[in-house]
Design a protein around this nucleic acid. Structure first.
Lengths: 149, 149
DNA sequence: CCTGAAACTCCGTGATT
DNA sequence: AATCACGGAGTTTCAGG
């Protein structure tokens, strides 16, 4: 997949604000709206673009605690069924299968530390196959961005 | 901040696709476009909405490796200058100040394992104040979503 | 908090270079 | 791969219930 400077400008505009009108990008870039439209269609077809999302600020909903939790599993644990159970825990917003000390690594979003404890104790620890876990609580998110284009 | 069922429908539509026309949401919900527009303005003012982003699929650009890296710092390390240096490393897409074993926890996006090694050895290890780090490489992202609304 | 209507802007496509 | 032109659609604002 090769993208040129104009594509980069389109992408950067839309990463910053996905609702930027095509025509306004066109004016910025200096070519017609139809041309931008064509390029965008091509980018979407190439699967470089994985959709457009409204971003929610979790703090406004009272979610103030981010934690990363590494799970240690029993040797006999069935991975797919653990993933399935984790999907049912709405506080789990990311889940990775990893190398290193852990087997599964998750990112959890909770209201506060007590809520985090509750989620870990009543929802994560209860999952069959999970032996123990290590928790890293984020006090402050300093960087949050996408792949550099 | 209190949001009702209609707000939730608007938010869910736009999380799924930030470019969904207001009028199409209006038809779904069964009220006028102007009403949806008004609610959206209010949600934006409330800071519940943190913008709209085009989502890039890193794999299409050759970025196939996600790693979480916990950094151990010298006691004398100056946090703000380390953050500043990390911002200059484009592969670092998230950075948290954490409790637990580490001081700083980052998420890194690289082309492959060799690239990850290069970034860690030549860009992270070189930062003054960073003593050592633990790396967890994601083999597979199973869940990736936003706070539940 | 909603509606309908008006004015404005944008989108998507087809024909053309 | 860009342009223009055009009809259909979406956005935004406002007066009014």
């Amino acid at each position: 997949m090769k993208i040129d400077g104009i594509d980069k400008k389109i992408i950067r505009s839309l990463i910053k604000d996905a609702r930027t009108p095509i025509l306004s990008i066109a004016r910025d870039v200096g070519i017609s709206g139809a041309a931008i439209h064509q390029r965008l269609r091509k980018l979407e077809k190439s699967e470089l673009i994985d959709g457009y999302q409204m971003m929610i600020n979790p703090k406004t909903l009272g979610y103030n605690t981010i934690a990363f939790v590494g799970l240690f599993l029993e040797n006999t644990a069935v991975l797919s069924s653990i993933i399935k159970r984790l999907k049912e825990v709405s506080e789990v917003v990311e889940c990775h299968y990893t190398t290193g000390n852990f087997t599964i690594f998750i990112k959890v979003l909770c209201k506060n530390n007590e809520d985090l404890m509750r989620v870990l104790e009543t929802k994560i620890k209860e999952i069959k196959g999970v032996v123990r876990f290590d928790t890293f609580t984020s006090l402050n998110k300093q960087i949050d961005r996408q792949v550099h284009v």
